[in-house]
Write a protein that binds this DNA or RNA. Structure first.
Lengths: 230, 230
DNA sequence: ATGCAGAATACTGTATGCAATCATCGTTCG
DNA sequence: CGAACGATGATTGCATACAGTATTCTGCAT
């Protein structure tokens, strides 16, 4: 590996991680895993004590949580965990599909053989998780694969927008939806092939169909859940 | 008008506007109009004194400015006005086109005759500004028209994402680009017609071409500016 | 003259304190 | 008995104060 210099270019880490960022991540985690339920009133003092910090980092984290759509911040009333509506979730899914379709096109235009190899690795990780029927690992592998495709599109704006949308989608659907299973990963394989061939149009179309399938899959599950009065 | 209840539903305003929001808006304005230049180091204490508030509202506003892409916040170093690259701007344009295309489709599905009438009003405002050759008014009318189409799509996620992208685009291009002129407004008219007919596919395609034209128009101007070494 | 080491400075990150506002509950009047 | 009013407790909004870190300047050695 001649491209391994004397100092492996680790990211400019070692920056003292600001407390507010740790708080931000802690709170998103608490929201995603359901410790903080939708609509719940978040009291700054409680969070501060619970996390062992002062109110200031909490407040700064809440600002970012609001713009990311995790909480609603009402003046003089405080923060409330955002309650997504069914309509909003459908919108999230359609927008995510749109953005991912675009990123697949970009990936097909910019990917190097090395990138493709990495995609196949991630695909294999997903297949392994699929065999083990490890739902958590499947979701994670799926996010990793889609995330890497976005990265390959070399589009900073997409890379910034998609995670915001994607995390919210996953947060809402995780409790009620099961991963799609083998079909999805077959579609992944064909998308990777198209990207590897450098066929933007083909990759775009395949991704469009893939996200459409995913959207329909989830919408059916929602309809079932809502239908039985849950 | 039977839908006018005893209490006209004015938005639940009159909430004491938090200082942090005023600061947020003041800073975006300062960035857009160039008082704060890209790459400039924003010192909290200076901003605080300049705006006559303490550092706390400044810090909270900076958090939101970061997630909105206006500033880069480096740990232990402070806030710097974001410096957009040419590549990033092209990406912003393409993503905006993507989102607006989607919103045009949604608008065609949901718009009422009353909504259409409003669109024609906005169109007329734009034409008036065009005749008066008032660049500022043209840009504003354009934003108003596109914004209303987004609103008609009844898609909260789009309504949340597009302004973020759009404002950054306008910020970067305003100093170097002139409005497109009559062509753009002819395209607008045809888009409104398609929305009025309730033809999602047609509205989508027209908007796609419109945004593509706009993107190319701006990219040519950039190339010209960069080409002459400015 | 130049490169480096060390201290001084300036700024950010965090904590705490106080005033203003909102929600809740008990009371009183119609 | 119901509804409006007022007091009280809790919570947010803002300001100030202190600690930690990065940058810069100065002086010295090479």
């Amino acid at each position: 590996m001649p491209d391994t210099p004397t100092v492996t270019a680790r990211g400019p880490i070692n920056r003292p991680t600001p407390l507010r960022q740790a708080v931000y991540e802690a709170l998103t985690e608490l929201i995603i895993n359901g410790s903080l339920k939708p609509g719940q009133h978040l009291v700054e003092a409680e969070l501060a004590e619970s996390l062992g910090v002062s109110r200031q980092p909490i407040r700064e984290a809440l600002q970012r949580l609001q713009t990311a759509g995790w909480v609603d911040l009402r003046p003089s009333q405080g923060a409330f965990v955002h309650s997504p509506t069914t309509a909003e979730c459908a919108q999230l899914l359609s927008v995510r599909g749109l953005l991912e379709t675009h990123s697949a096109r970009g990936a097909a235009q910019h990917a190097t053989p090395r990138d493709i190899a990495r995609l196949w690795e991630l695909q294999q990780t997903g297949l392994t998780a699929l065999e083990a029927a490890d739902a958590r690992a499947i979701v994670e592998a799926n996010a990793a694969l889609h995330g890497h495709i976005t990265l390959l599109s070399r589009n900073a704006v997409l890379a910034e927008l998609i995670p915001q949308v994607d995390r919210r989608v996953r947060w809402y659907y995780m409790p009620i939806a099961r991963p799609r299973g083998k079909d999805a990963w077959n579609e992944h394989a064909r998308i990777i092939e198209a990207i590897g061939e450098g066929s933007p149009g083909r990759a775009e179309e395949l991704m469009r169909r893939h996200t459409r399938n995913t959207t329909e899959f989830y919408c059916r599950q929602i309809a079932a859940v809502v239908g039985r009065g849950d």
